[in-house]
């Protein structure tokens, strides 16, 4: 075996079930000088699904955006380690090549840029980065058609401009379709359920469930418990005022649904008082 092959198989084995996919330590971040995240600690193992819930303005989307590498967020303290590497040191496209995927809360429309072309460029950039052979047009079309079925995306969407003229539900389905094609190790689903009717939600959730794998971790950021009826998380975290105040299993989500978020905040306040 050549040394590179050895390295490759070793690196593959490294992220099997139970190994740490991403570790966020004491993360502080601001936007325009305003503190949004105030010390986030979170560790996600390979194959796990974590739901991050919280009220509006708690910092949920900020966290997803920082992991994906969007401009405009200043990390003032802390670190994010992804597959053993410093994630914050990478450009957004490098993160994509390393297997990070963000399903956007508000997917942008890019008129004139072909959906399939964009994905082919993305897939091949990633393959090149990982030392694999690039896919040719025919192989790629086969891959894309199979994945489109997964989220019941009409094939006519493949040749359209990215999200151009898509309805809200179609945009979200397109995000999960892209996730299926790009096969990430870590997928961030940012409010993927918002704006979906019940049928669209079922289709999107089905797609995500098909994509669950032992070497793939998923972070779902959401307001509502109803998404978790369809995609069952291993862990639920409550994010409020820039901190994770409580973590638990999926029963925590049900409690949040019936009691709201305030009791979590009160508990935290009491805890601080007691200390």
């Amino acid at each position: 075996m050549k040394q590179t092959d050895l390295w490759k198989s070793a690196s593959k084995a490294q992220w099997d079930k139970g190994m740490t996919m991403i570790k966020i330590e004491n993360l502080h971040a601001s936007v325009d000088g305003k503190k949004i995240l105030k010390g986030i600690n979170l560790e996600i193992g390979a194959g796990e699904i974590h739901a991050i819930m919280g009220p509006n303005g708690s910092g949920k989307s900020t966290l997803s955006n920082i992991i994906a590498g969007r401009d405009g967020y200043e990390v003032t303290a802390g670190s994010i380690t992804y597959k053993g590497k410093d994630l914050l040191d990478m450009e957004p496209e490098e993160r994509a090549w390393e297997g990070v995927f963000l399903a956007f809360q508000y997917p942008v429309e890019i008129p004139g840029v072909n959906n399939t072309y964009m994905l082919k460029a993305g897939v091949n950039a990633k393959r090149k980065h990982q030392g694999e052979q690039e896919l040719d047009a025919i192989d790629f079309m086969q891959l894309v058609k199979a994945k489109a079925k997964l989220v019941e995306l009409d094939q006519s969407f493949l040749s359209r401009g990215v999200n151009e003229g898509f309805s809200g539900g179609e945009k979200k389905r397109n995000e999960i379709f892209q996730m299926a094609v790009l096969e990430p190790s870590l997928a961030l689903l940012d409010e993927t359920d918002s704006g979906l009717d019940i049928d669209a939600l079922r289709i999107v959730a089905n797609g995500v469930n098909h994509l669950r794998r032992e070497d793939r971790s998923i972070i779902m950021v959401t307001h509502y418990q109803r998404l978790l009826d369809y995609i069952e998380p291993d862990f639920v975290h409550v994010l409020a005022d820039g901190q994770i105040l409580k973590s638990g299993d999926k029963s925590l989500a049900l409690e949040l649904e019936s009691r709201g978020y305030d009791w979590v905040k009160e508990e935290e306040a009491d805890r601080i008082k007691a200390a």
Binding site: R70, E93, F101, V162, Q178, L182
Partner: peptide
């Protein structure tokens, strides 16, 4: 900027993303 970030988050390099958006 949002379109650029979207393309980069899908794995296109900065240069590729700029070309594509200019072309479009």
């Amino acid at each position: 900027k949002n379109q650029l970030f979207y393309l980069k988050s899908r794995g296109l390099s900065e240069e590729e993303a700029r070309q594509l958006l200019t072309f479009a």
